[in-house]
Amino acid sequence: MVELLRFREDEPVADPAVTVDAFLDQPDARAVRIEPGDDVSVLLPHLAHVQLVEVNFPVFGDGRGYSAARTLREAGYAGELRAVGDVLLDQLSNMRRCGFDAFEPERAMDPQAVQAALDRWPHDYQPAADGHVPIWKLRHG
């Protein structure tokens, strides 16, 4: 069973993640944590030195974090993007698609089940933040 799943080569930053409000007061912080209601666009000007963004999912059914993740990736954020909280096995593959590359779920997961969940889909209908080639592109080259 694993508690932190990472799909990155670099070392995790050790700094504790600060809230968005705190981050705006100390914009040299390297780790920040987003709650569902936070507006990620306020982070966009400061992304250059951020190494970890944690996106909290207090309940798995609140999907705002998926949009937050894509907005960050579309703005060019390349650091670690970690989903934390009520993150479920069956959500991992969509989260990967939206740009998350690390997971810290409340309940530890079985690595084999994680692998199976991530290997589930042979293709994708849409382009997203994971660089996968969408089906329409496969059809038309």
Partner: peptide, 13 residues
């Protein structure tokens, strides 16, 4: 239909 099917961002609207 194809765009909305398994759309990764919009499963928990």
């Amino acid at each position: 239909r194809q765009w909305s099917t398994f759309h990764p961002e919009f499963m928990y609207l």
